[in-house]
């Protein structure tokens, strides 16, 4: 079965078995091993990627069902060797220890911030509850996400407002 995906902006066309999961397509067919697996039952979230900007567990997603869609993996967050702000805050907060949950955690956090630019701590915890982390106890991950939100809001409010309406995003 031909599965066409745009992954991190690049188009891929690969013939795969119909029952190939998105996880297998990414890790084994495209060799994008940044996406991890921890359970294959959708319980740990290590395999989280974005499909059209929304987070899914790629272990339970048939690749053929998302053919023609856009997929973003952890490899698609940084550009030209420069970490994106969320990745940078994960680094500076010590939000990654063994790092195995980190790719999935980043994708869930990125999805949250796109839909809810100013989340409360409770909302961050709720949004990340599908991503198990055994190393950090979550404190530093939550802090990294909250700091990113704050930084993005400041960046937005720093842009001159051309629409004429006041845009007071921020803390």
């Amino acid at each position: 079965m031909l599965v066409e995906l745009k992954v991190n902006g690049f188009p891929y066309r690969r013939e795969v078995a119909p029952d190939t999961t998105l996880l297998t397509y990414l890790r084994e067919v495209l060799e994008l091993t940044g996406t991890k697996w921890g359970c294959l039952t959708g319980d740990c979230g290590a395999c989280t990627v974005l499909v059209d900007g929304e987070p899914v567990v790629s272990c339970l997603q048939l690749a053929c069902q998302v053919s023609g869609h856009e997929v973003t993996t952890v490899e698609g967050l940084d550009t030209a060797g420069e970490l994106n702000d969320l990745q940078a805050h994960f680094v500076s907060n010590g939000a990654s220890q063994c790092g195995f949950c980190t790719p999935g955690m980043l994708m869930s956090a990125e999805a949250l911030l796109r839909n809810n630019p100013d989340p409360s701590e409770a909302e961050v915890r709720e949004a990340l509850s599908g991503n198990l982390c055994r190393c950090t106890g979550y404190n530093k991950i939550v802090d990294a996400v909250l700091e990113t939100a704050k930084a993005r809001a400041m960046a937005v409010s720093a842009v001159p407002d051309l629409s004429g309406s006041s845009s007071s995003v921020g803390s």
């Binding site: 989280t48 929304e54 899914v56 567990v57 599908g130």
Partner: peptide, 9 residues
């Protein structure tokens, strides 16, 4: 129900 990811799917 499940996680955000599961609910999205």
């Amino acid at each position: 129900l499940g996680s955000v990811q599961v609910r999205t799917m």
